[in-house]
């Protein structure tokens, strides 16, 4: 169960309980609306539920890490946030707009406010690095080519890539370079939100740390809200203000909530839920128990 579900939002949005008379209700500033909100979200494919009754709010400026084992629906959750996956039930709000009610054109326009860094970078393999990073600018702006070139070079420099890579194709790049080009491409339209899908998966520890630093640096340089989907505890602890841990539905009871933990990263280890503590420590105690007793979906 949700051990240690200290939701920073619930504190942030509620007025302080003080005996001192405060300002009149008319003068009170309304609590800021969360930038992203998922309300009773259910997502399923071919009769199998992947996400069940998810309720989550992400305020502007926060870096949220979504943790969980493989197959728990982290990436599906991320893709639902930009309308790449349509929820079966429930609502997804972005800046007050209900994504489930938007048409194709409105959704396409809205996505320009969101940057998405894919797990395998998803660079267009028929285009060079320059063309990949310049692609959103060419598609959605009327900027002259010289200005586009300057922006591309600046974004690549931000992620630590030299102009030498401009003419290279994705197949000629290493995994780390591909991810950095993917980040540069996601940043090029200066989005309000950046979604990272497993940013450090498949990278060596040094390159993983480089990517973690880039996530932090991006947040310092640009006023963005970030959601990082990962199963790397180090990434979550280093980059996030808040952590949400999901659990695979196939191994949950019908009345259990899919969000096992929602709170600050440094409190995870103190969670009352052994599954959360196991995940933090990288121990398979509960999982092995489930496998031995046959309580497994495999």
């Amino acid at each position: 169960m949700a051990g240690g579900t200290q939701n920073p939002l619930s504190h942030a949005s509620s007025p302080p309980a003080s005996p001192v008379p405060g300002p009149k209700p008319a003068e009170t500033l309304p609590p800021e609306r969360p930038l992203i909100e998922m309300d009773r979200l259910w997502v399923g494919f071919e009769g199998l539920w992947v996400l069940r009754d998810i309720h989550l709010q992400v305020p502007r400026g926060q870096t949220l890490a979504i943790l969980g084992e493989s197959g728990c629906g982290k990436t599906v959750l991320l893709k639902t946030l930009i309308g790449l996956v349509r929820p079966s039930r429930g609502k997804v709000y972005f800046d007050g707009l209900d994504l489930t009610r938007l048409g194709e054109k409105e959704l396409t326009r809205l996505r320009r406010r969101i940057g998405f860094v894919f797990q395998q970078a998803a660079l267009f393999d028929s285009m060079s690095v320059y063309e990949n990073v310049a692609f959103p600018l060419r598609q959605h702006t009327d900027k002259p080519e010289e200005e586009i070139r300057d922006i591309v070079l600046a974004r690549l420099a931000e992620v630590g890539l030299s102009p030498k890579v401009l003419t290279k194709y994705p197949a000629e790049l290493s995994g780390g370079m591909r991810k950095r080009v993917g980040l540069a491409r996601a940043l090029v339209l200066e989005p309000e939100v950046i979604l990272y899908d497993e940013p450090t998966t498949g990278l060596d520890p040094i390159m993983s740390d480089v990517i973690n630093e880039l996530i932090l640096q991006t947040r310092q340089c640009h006023p963005v809200t970030s959601i990082v989907v990962t199963h790397d505890m180090r990434t979550a602890q280093k980059t996030a203000d808040r952590v949400v841990m999901l659990y695979p539905l196939a191994r949950l009871g019908p009345r259990e909530t899919q969000i096992l933990y929602d709170g600050p990263p440094d409190q995870m280890e103190k969670s009352s839920d052994p599954r959360v503590r196991d995940f933090v420590r990288g121990e398979a105690t509960q999982r092995l128990l489930e496998i031995r007793t046959g309580q497994t979906e495999e």
């Binding site: 194709e104 598609q139 959605h140």
Partner: peptide
């Protein structure tokens, strides 16, 4: 399968 179509959509291109 390499998510390039999803990437197009995510970049605001239909």
């Amino acid at each position: 399968i390499t998510e390039q179509i999803d990437a197009l959509a995510a970049l605001g291109t239909n």
